[in-house]
Protein backbone atom coordinates (compact mmCIF):
# COMPACT_ATOMS: atom_id res chain seq x y z
CA UNK A 1 0.00 0.00 0.00
CA UNK A 2 1.12 3.55 -0.44
CA UNK A 3 2.38 5.33 2.58
CA UNK A 4 1.70 8.81 3.73
CA UNK A 5 4.46 11.27 2.84
CA UNK A 6 5.02 12.31 6.45
CA UNK A 7 4.82 8.80 7.88
CA UNK A 8 8.56 8.33 8.01
CA UNK A 9 9.11 11.65 9.77
CA UNK A 10 6.46 10.92 12.39
CA UNK A 11 7.87 7.48 13.00
CA UNK A 12 11.47 8.52 13.49
CA UNK A 13 10.41 11.48 15.62
CA UNK A 14 8.60 9.03 17.86
CA UNK A 15 11.61 6.75 17.99
CA UNK A 16 13.75 9.72 19.03
CA UNK A 17 11.38 10.61 21.89
CA UNK A 18 11.31 6.99 22.87
CA UNK A 19 15.07 6.64 23.02
CA UNK A 20 15.79 9.92 24.77
CA UNK A 21 14.96 8.90 28.39
CA UNK A 22 16.76 5.60 27.83
CA UNK A 23 19.90 7.23 26.50
CA UNK A 24 19.75 9.76 29.30
CA UNK A 25 19.81 7.01 31.89
CA UNK A 26 22.72 5.40 30.08
CA UNK A 27 24.48 8.76 30.14
CA UNK A 28 23.91 8.98 33.90
CA UNK A 29 25.38 5.55 34.41
CA UNK A 30 28.77 6.50 32.96
CA UNK A 31 29.21 9.72 34.90
CA UNK A 32 30.75 10.11 38.34
CA UNK A 33 28.26 11.22 40.97
CA UNK A 34 29.81 14.61 41.67
CA UNK A 35 29.37 15.46 38.00
CA UNK A 36 25.71 14.38 38.03
CA UNK A 37 24.92 16.61 40.98
CA UNK A 38 27.45 19.32 40.25
CA UNK A 39 26.37 20.88 36.98
CA UNK A 40 23.92 20.08 34.23
CA UNK A 41 25.49 19.00 30.97
CA UNK A 42 24.12 17.20 27.96
CA UNK A 43 27.06 14.90 27.42
CA UNK A 44 29.20 13.31 30.11
CA UNK A 45 32.39 15.30 30.75
CA UNK A 46 34.28 12.51 32.47
CA UNK A 47 33.29 9.08 31.22
CA UNK A 48 33.78 6.50 33.93
CA UNK A 49 32.87 2.90 34.60
CA UNK A 50 33.07 3.25 38.36
CA UNK A 51 29.30 2.80 38.80
CA UNK A 52 29.45 -0.53 37.01
CA UNK A 53 32.51 -1.56 38.99
CA UNK A 54 30.64 -0.78 42.19
CA UNK A 55 27.71 -2.84 40.99
CA UNK A 56 29.83 -5.91 40.31
CA UNK A 57 31.93 -5.66 43.46
CA UNK A 58 29.21 -4.88 46.00
CA UNK A 59 27.58 -8.17 46.93
CA UNK A 60 24.30 -6.46 47.86
CA UNK A 61 23.96 -5.50 44.19
CA UNK A 62 25.26 -8.40 42.18
CA UNK A 63 23.77 -11.04 44.47
CA UNK A 64 20.29 -9.59 44.13
CA UNK A 65 20.81 -9.54 40.36
CA UNK A 66 21.66 -13.25 40.55
CA UNK A 67 18.64 -13.84 42.80
CA UNK A 68 16.38 -12.39 40.15
CA UNK A 69 17.92 -14.56 37.44
CA UNK A 70 17.58 -17.70 39.58
CA UNK A 71 13.93 -17.29 40.49
CA UNK A 72 12.81 -16.10 37.06
CA UNK A 73 14.53 -19.11 35.45
CA UNK A 74 12.93 -21.50 37.94
CA UNK A 75 9.58 -19.88 37.36
CA UNK A 76 9.90 -20.14 33.58
CA UNK A 77 10.68 -23.86 33.76
CA UNK A 78 7.87 -24.59 36.21
CA UNK A 79 5.32 -22.56 34.28
CA UNK A 80 6.16 -24.27 30.99
CA UNK A 81 6.08 -27.79 32.43
CA UNK A 82 2.70 -27.17 33.99
CA UNK A 83 1.21 -25.22 31.11
CA UNK A 84 2.21 -27.38 28.12
CA UNK A 85 -0.13 -30.34 28.72
CA UNK A 86 -2.94 -28.03 29.81
CA UNK A 87 -2.64 -25.86 26.72
CA UNK A 88 -2.73 -29.00 24.59
CA UNK A 89 -5.89 -30.14 26.36
CA UNK A 90 -7.56 -26.78 25.85
CA UNK A 91 -6.65 -26.63 22.18
CA UNK A 92 -7.66 -30.21 21.34
CA UNK A 93 -10.51 -31.37 23.55
CA UNK A 94 -13.73 -30.28 25.06
CA UNK A 95 -14.19 -31.38 28.64
CA UNK A 96 -16.46 -30.60 31.54
CA UNK A 97 -15.88 -27.04 32.73
CA UNK A 98 -13.21 -26.24 30.16
CA UNK A 99 -14.49 -22.76 29.37
CA UNK A 100 -14.90 -21.86 33.01
CA UNK A 101 -11.42 -23.04 33.75
CA UNK A 102 -10.00 -21.11 30.82
CA UNK A 103 -11.74 -17.96 32.02
CA UNK A 104 -10.66 -18.53 35.59
CA UNK A 105 -7.03 -18.74 34.45
CA UNK A 106 -7.41 -15.39 32.71
CA UNK A 107 -8.70 -13.76 35.89
CA UNK A 108 -5.51 -14.83 37.64
CA UNK A 109 -3.37 -13.27 34.96
CA UNK A 110 -5.36 -10.05 35.28
CA UNK A 111 -5.66 -9.95 39.06
CA UNK A 112 -3.80 -7.09 40.71
CA UNK A 113 -0.82 -8.60 42.57
CA UNK A 114 -1.64 -6.26 45.46
CA UNK A 115 -4.72 -8.37 46.19
CA UNK A 116 -2.52 -11.35 47.03
CA UNK A 117 0.03 -9.55 49.15
CA UNK A 118 -1.41 -10.22 52.55
CA UNK A 119 -2.02 -13.97 52.21
CA UNK A 120 1.24 -14.53 50.35
CA UNK A 121 3.17 -12.92 53.15
CA UNK A 122 1.55 -15.21 55.72
CA UNK A 123 1.32 -18.44 53.73
CA UNK A 124 4.89 -18.37 52.48
CA UNK A 125 6.12 -17.70 55.97
CA UNK A 126 4.12 -20.57 57.45
CA UNK A 127 5.27 -23.14 54.88
CA UNK A 128 8.91 -22.07 55.03
CA UNK A 129 9.10 -20.62 51.54
CA UNK A 130 9.58 -17.05 52.72
CA UNK A 131 12.76 -15.47 51.36
CA UNK A 132 13.65 -18.42 49.13
CA UNK A 133 14.11 -18.49 45.37
CA UNK A 134 11.68 -21.35 45.17
CA UNK A 135 9.07 -19.30 47.01
CA UNK A 136 9.22 -16.40 44.57
CA UNK A 137 9.24 -18.78 41.60
CA UNK A 138 6.08 -20.45 42.88
CA UNK A 139 4.40 -17.16 43.75
CA UNK A 140 4.99 -15.84 40.25
CA UNK A 141 3.26 -18.89 38.81
CA UNK A 142 0.10 -17.05 39.88
CA UNK A 143 0.18 -14.99 36.69
CA UNK A 144 2.73 -16.87 34.57
CA UNK A 145 0.95 -20.22 34.40
CA UNK A 146 -2.25 -18.64 33.03
CA UNK A 147 -0.16 -16.53 30.67
CA UNK A 148 1.71 -19.57 29.40
CA UNK A 149 -1.48 -21.60 28.97
CA UNK A 150 -3.17 -18.83 27.00
CA UNK A 151 -0.19 -18.10 24.74
CA UNK A 152 0.52 -21.77 24.07
CA UNK A 153 -3.13 -22.49 23.41
CA UNK A 154 -3.16 -19.69 20.85
CA UNK A 155 -0.18 -21.20 19.03
CA UNK A 156 -1.37 -24.81 19.31
CA UNK A 157 -4.80 -23.99 17.91
CA UNK A 158 -3.05 -22.82 14.78
CA UNK A 159 -1.78 -26.36 14.19
CA UNK A 160 -4.37 -28.50 12.42
CA UNK A 161 -5.77 -31.39 14.39
CA UNK A 162 -5.32 -33.69 11.41
CA UNK A 163 -1.70 -34.10 12.47
CA UNK A 164 -2.78 -35.61 15.79
CA UNK A 165 -5.19 -37.90 14.02
CA UNK A 166 -2.64 -39.06 11.47
CA UNK A 167 -0.16 -39.81 14.22
CA UNK A 168 -2.80 -41.77 16.13
CA UNK A 169 -3.53 -43.83 13.01
CA UNK A 170 0.20 -44.46 12.62
CA UNK A 171 0.18 -45.99 16.08
CA UNK A 172 1.67 -43.18 18.13
CA UNK A 173 0.51 -43.08 21.73
CA UNK A 174 -0.45 -39.64 23.02
CA UNK A 175 2.69 -39.13 25.15
CA UNK A 176 4.95 -40.35 22.37
CA UNK A 177 3.21 -38.13 19.81
CA UNK A 178 3.38 -35.20 22.19
CA UNK A 179 7.10 -35.44 22.86
CA UNK A 180 8.33 -36.75 19.50
CA UNK A 181 6.19 -34.81 17.07
CA UNK A 182 4.14 -32.09 18.70
CA UNK A 183 6.72 -30.41 20.91
CA UNK A 184 9.30 -30.10 18.12
CA UNK A 185 6.58 -28.59 15.94
CA UNK A 186 5.80 -25.85 18.39
CA UNK A 187 9.30 -25.14 19.61
CA UNK A 188 9.16 -21.51 18.49
CA UNK A 189 5.93 -21.13 20.48
CA UNK A 190 7.67 -22.60 23.51
CA UNK A 191 10.52 -20.18 23.05
CA UNK A 192 8.17 -17.22 22.84
CA UNK A 193 6.23 -18.39 25.88
CA UNK A 194 9.41 -18.91 27.86
CA UNK A 195 10.46 -15.41 26.93
CA UNK A 196 7.22 -13.91 28.19
CA UNK A 197 7.26 -15.92 31.41
CA UNK A 198 10.82 -14.85 32.04
CA UNK A 199 10.00 -11.26 31.31
CA UNK A 200 6.89 -10.94 33.43
CA UNK A 201 8.65 -12.59 36.35
CA UNK A 202 11.69 -10.36 35.81
CA UNK A 203 9.68 -7.13 35.87
CA UNK A 204 7.44 -7.98 38.83
CA UNK A 205 8.31 -6.08 41.97
CA UNK A 206 5.45 -6.04 44.45
CA UNK A 207 5.12 -9.76 45.23
CA UNK A 208 8.82 -10.50 44.94
CA UNK A 209 9.64 -7.74 47.38
CA UNK A 210 6.96 -8.71 49.86
CA UNK A 211 7.93 -12.35 50.25
CA UNK A 212 11.69 -11.84 50.41
CA UNK A 213 14.01 -10.10 52.82
CA UNK A 214 17.70 -10.89 52.29
CA UNK A 215 18.54 -14.24 50.70
CA UNK A 216 16.28 -14.02 47.66
CA UNK A 217 15.94 -10.26 47.43
CA UNK A 218 15.30 -9.26 43.81
CA UNK A 219 17.31 -6.61 41.99
CA UNK A 220 14.16 -4.53 41.63
CA UNK A 221 13.83 -4.30 45.41
CA UNK A 222 17.48 -3.39 45.81
CA UNK A 223 17.00 -0.63 43.27
CA UNK A 224 14.10 0.90 45.17
CA UNK A 225 16.19 1.13 48.33
CA UNK A 226 19.20 3.05 47.17
CA UNK A 227 18.75 6.02 49.43
CA UNK A 228 21.78 6.34 51.68
CA UNK A 229 22.78 9.05 54.11
CA UNK A 230 24.20 11.03 51.21
CA UNK A 231 20.96 10.86 49.23
CA UNK A 232 20.26 8.70 46.20
CA UNK A 233 23.27 7.31 44.39
CA UNK A 234 22.00 8.26 40.92
CA UNK A 235 24.95 6.95 38.95
CA UNK A 236 24.80 3.52 40.54
CA UNK A 237 21.02 3.40 40.20
CA UNK A 238 21.31 4.22 36.49
CA UNK A 239 23.99 1.56 36.02
CA UNK A 240 21.75 -1.02 37.70
CA UNK A 241 18.91 0.10 35.43
CA UNK A 242 21.01 -0.38 32.31
CA UNK A 243 22.09 -3.83 33.49
CA UNK A 244 18.51 -4.97 34.20
CA UNK A 245 17.42 -3.97 30.70
CA UNK A 246 20.08 -6.17 29.12
CA UNK A 247 18.40 -9.62 29.42
CA UNK A 248 15.30 -8.34 27.61
CA UNK A 249 17.33 -6.44 25.04
CA UNK A 250 19.31 -9.57 24.16
CA UNK A 251 16.36 -11.81 23.35
CA UNK A 252 14.06 -9.17 21.86
CA UNK A 253 15.54 -9.71 18.41
CA UNK A 254 14.51 -13.35 18.35
CA UNK A 255 10.92 -12.75 19.40
CA UNK A 256 10.33 -9.52 17.48
CA UNK A 257 7.58 -10.99 15.32
CA UNK A 258 5.72 -12.46 18.27
CA UNK A 259 5.72 -9.58 20.74
CA UNK A 260 2.19 -8.47 19.90
CA UNK A 261 0.95 -12.05 20.03
CA UNK A 262 2.57 -12.71 23.37
CA UNK A 263 1.22 -9.59 25.03
CA UNK A 264 -2.24 -10.29 23.59
CA UNK A 265 -2.13 -13.75 25.23
CA UNK A 266 -1.85 -15.55 21.92
CA UNK A 267 -4.99 -13.93 20.49
CA UNK A 268 -3.55 -11.88 17.62
Amino acid sequence: MRRLPWARTVFWLYVATLMLPLLWMFGMSIRPNDEILGSFSLLPQNVTLENYVTFFTDSAWYSSYLNSIVYTSLNTVFSLIVALPAAYAFSRFRFAGDKHLFFWLLTNRMAPPAVFLLPFFQIYQSVGLFDTHLGVAIAHMLFNVPLAVWILEGFMSGIPREIDETAAIDGYSLPRFFFKIFLPMIRSAIGVTAFFCFMFSWVELLIARTITSVNAKPIAATMTRTVSAAGIDWGLLAAAGVLTIIPGAIVIWFVRNYIAKGFALGRV
Binding site: F11, V15, L18, M19, L20, P21, L22, W24, M25, M28, I36, L37, F40, M199, W202, V203, E204, L205, A220, M223, T224, W234, L237, A238, A240, G241, T244, I245, G248, A249, I252, W253, R256, N257, I259, F263
Partner: peptide, 28 residues
Protein backbone atom coordinates in the same frame (compact mmCIF):
# COMPACT_ATOMS: atom_id res chain seq x y z
CA UNK B 1 11.41 -0.72 13.79
CA UNK B 2 9.76 -3.64 15.59
CA UNK B 3 12.67 -4.04 17.97
CA UNK B 4 13.03 -0.35 18.72
CA UNK B 5 9.33 0.21 19.28
CA UNK B 6 9.08 -2.87 21.51
CA UNK B 7 12.01 -1.85 23.66
CA UNK B 8 10.08 -0.02 26.43
CA UNK B 9 7.81 -3.03 26.86
CA UNK B 10 10.71 -5.22 27.90
CA UNK B 11 12.18 -2.88 30.46
CA UNK B 12 11.51 -3.96 34.04
CA UNK B 13 8.73 -1.82 35.42
CA UNK B 14 10.78 -0.48 38.28
CA UNK B 15 13.49 0.55 35.80
CA UNK B 16 10.85 2.40 33.79
CA UNK B 17 10.20 4.18 37.06
CA UNK B 18 13.91 4.83 37.55
CA UNK B 19 14.32 6.13 34.01
CA UNK B 20 11.56 8.68 34.52
CA UNK B 21 12.58 9.45 38.07
CA UNK B 22 15.88 10.62 36.61
CA UNK B 23 14.61 12.04 33.31
CA UNK B 24 11.86 14.25 34.81
CA UNK B 25 13.96 15.77 37.57
CA UNK B 26 14.65 19.45 37.19
CA UNK B 27 18.26 19.25 38.36
CA UNK B 28 19.67 16.12 36.74
Amino acid sequence: ALVVVALPLLIPWNVVGTIWQIFARGDI
